[in-house]
């Protein structure tokens, strides 16, 4: 039963992460084209570093790092009278009240906390990719249109929200659709983050002997993994079709080659 529920976990992760990553990406891209130099460096550095290092290293890093950062902040605010250092040799010690989640809280809180950490990690990593794509999309919007906006007396902010924003999506969509594919393909890495997802259950249920039970059947893991393979193939195929439809729709009335060919076709 948990095996089928874990498919839900994966879908939930996708549904939550995609908008969050887009948000991160949006801020990253806006920062990268900002007029304030330090902000611009921050935006560019963020995308450059995340791209240059294997994403799995980030997944392993951020889960611990975020957890420790949260606990450290809570430790500083909640137990200010604590004098011992937080790092004692190889241990990371915070006071009991700063533990996250609290050791008294029920199991589902622990699981949800793990899930939230995973979502944040995914959002940070894929936000950098999204920032890159959106940055490209923003630059692809014809510059003359922005200048026209300014010539009509719009402020920077108005130009951004009224001219740049609505148009950049068309240019960014091919990149974003690819990003979605990568995101789908990255979801099994949840297993490494300690969330009990489909890979975990496929290993547990498929094996003839798991940590909790021993099953009467022989080693079935190969069939479970075959099932996962088919599941992911179906996911990518469906997304491909949806994105094709979306692209057709967005291209209507746009001054891109796709839009032109569409207009020519219908006329």
């Amino acid at each position: 039963m948990s095996f089928y529920a874990s498919f839900g976990t994966v879908l939930l992760l996708l549904a939550v992460t995609a908008p969050t990553a887009l948000l991160f990406g949006f801020f990253g891209a806006s920062a990268a084209r900002s007029h304030i130099a330090p902000l611009r460096w921050l935006g560019k550095g963020y995308t450059a570093i995340v791209r240059g290092v294997p994403d799995i290293a980030f997944f392993l890093f951020f889960v611990i790092a975020l957890d420790q950062a949260f606990e450290y902040v809570r430790h500083k605010t909640l137990c200010s009278d604590w004098t011992e250092p937080v790092r004692q040799g190889n241990d990371f010690v915070v006071c009991a009240a700063a533990k996250l989640p609290l050791s008294t809280s029920p199991q589902w809180v622990h699981e949800t906390y793990g899930f939230i950490l995973a979502v944040l990690t995914f959002a940070i990593v894929f936000g950098a990719f999204a920032a890159n794509v959106l940055y490209g999309g923003m630059r692809a919007v014809p510059h003359a249109q922005l200048q026209t906006g300014e010539a009509y007396g719009m402020t920077q902010r108005q130009v951004f929200w009224r001219i740049l924003m609505p148009q950049m999506w068309v240019y960014a969509l091919p990149g974003l659709s690819n990003l979605w594919m990568i995101l789908i393909k990255a979801t099994p890495l949840l297993f490494l983050l300690g969330v009990e997802d489909i890979v975990y259950w496929a290993r547990e249920l498929g094996g003839s002997k798991s940590s909790a039970f021993s099953y009467p059947h022989p080693d079935w893991r190969i069939y479970y993994f075959l099932g996962l393979l088919v599941f992911y193939l179906a996911m990518t195929k469906i997304s491909e079709i949806v994105f094709e439809k979306l692209m057709d729709r967005l291209n209507l009335g746009q001054a891109t080659t796709g839009g032109k060919s569409l207009a020519g076709g219908s006329a």
Binding site: L189, F191, A202, F225
Partner: peptide, 22 residues
Amino acid sequence: IFIFRGSPLFIQFFFAYELFVL
């Protein structure tokens, strides 16, 4: 191309390992 590009590398590793063990 579809099978190898459409599925996660991570799952491919798992699947291949189980296959090779058999």
